[in-house]
């Protein structure tokens, strides 16, 4: 009994630096955000009487809902694209590369080594009006004037997000694919499965945890992103993150910004929960 108690104590004392940082870095700002979302902006100051006016406005004014929906949609698209593109890469390294696997992984995560802004600008160069793609297409005579929809569009944001977050998708999926015992695949073949059935019945279900982590790892942070849409999105590509940023900047309505941030967080949390339940359900159905 004594021993248990002191062990627990020790565990906590080991954890305490982390706990303190988490408390200061996450809980305190979060608390401030919640409290502030019930305030009202008055000029350069706040009226601190608690009110749900901000929440009412957020649900009533269609622009907020529309932007939130668009953000979820765009980040969902970026997530699906990333996972679909990265799964084959992770699969390739896990099953068909036999030497220097780590080198391959490092190379695949290379984009992640440069600054985020740099990557966004690189895509601007590629997709831009005078960019790489347009110049190339014009040079070979496929088009006469530059394609405008490449840059400043939802597509541009989705492409850039997918590329920028690829490392987060490859790593967990690679780990879960690499972990699969090769004799399970041989057993499935032995029991009559061709390559496709074997993939669907063994490889895919066993790598599902990696796919799920990849999905969440990308979806959660990209929904609130504001740099990429600001630089590449144009008017069609504005996301809720841009709006929140504006509330704390040009618009100068901090309580409204806090309210939107909390609504965004709740939406992500809800979608994540639904996603987790759904995959769990599917996994149960498969087995």
């Amino acid at each position: 009994m004594m021993l248990q108690k002191s062990e627990t104590l020790r565990a906590y004392s080991l954890l305490s630096p982390t706990l303190i940082i988490m408390a200061i870095g996450i809980l305190v700002p979060f608390g401030i955000l919640i409290v502030m979302s019930f305030w009202t902006q008055v000029g350069f100051g706040f009226d601190m009487t608690p009110t749900v006016a901000n929440y009412e406005m957020a649900t009533e004014r269609p622009i907020y809902g529309a932007l939130l929906k668009r953000s979820l949609w765009m980040s969902g698209m970026a997530t699906v694209t990333t996972v679909l593109l990265c799964y084959p890469m992770a699969y390739f390294v896990a099953f068909h590369v036999h030497r220097n696997k780590m080198l391959w992984i490092v190379l695949m995560t290379l984009p992640f080594w440069t600054s985020y802004l740099l990557r966004v600008f690189a895509w601007k160069v590629v997709l831009g009006y005078d960019g790489v793609i347009n110049s190339a297409l014009m040079n070979i005579g496929l088009i006469e004037k530059p394609l405008e929809f490449l840059l400043y569009s939802q597509a541009a944001v989705i492409i850039t997000l997918a590329h920028a977050w690829a490392a987060f998708a490859i790593l967990p999926m690679y780990v879960s694919l690499e972990k699969i015992d090769r004799s399970l695949l041989e057993a499935a073949t032995d029991l009559g499965d061709g390559p496709v059935m074997r993939f669907l019945r063994i490889t895919l279900p066993l790598s599902l945890p990696g796919v799920m982590s990849a999905t969440l790892l990308i979806f959660i942070p990209t929904t609130g992103d504001y740099i990429t849409p600001a630089l590449l999105g144009g008017p069609d590509g504005v996301m809720i993150g841009n709006l929140i940023q504006k509330q704390f900047g040009a618009v100068n309505n901090w309580p409204m910004g806090a309210t939107l941030a909390i609504i965004l967080m709740l939406s992500i949390a809800m979608i994540t929960l639904v996603f987790l339940f759904a995959t769990n359900f599917v996994r149960k159905r498969i087995s």
Binding site: S183, A187, A188
Partner: peptide
């Protein structure tokens, strides 16, 4: 003739039981 078309079945050294399926499946 690929393994999945041969009239043989194998019991693997480590048994290779599928971890995501129950005994019946």
């Amino acid at each position: 003739v690929p393994p999945h078309h041969r009239p043989v079945n194998m019991v693997f050294q480590n048994y290779a039981i599928f971890p995501h399926l129950n005994v019946r499946d």
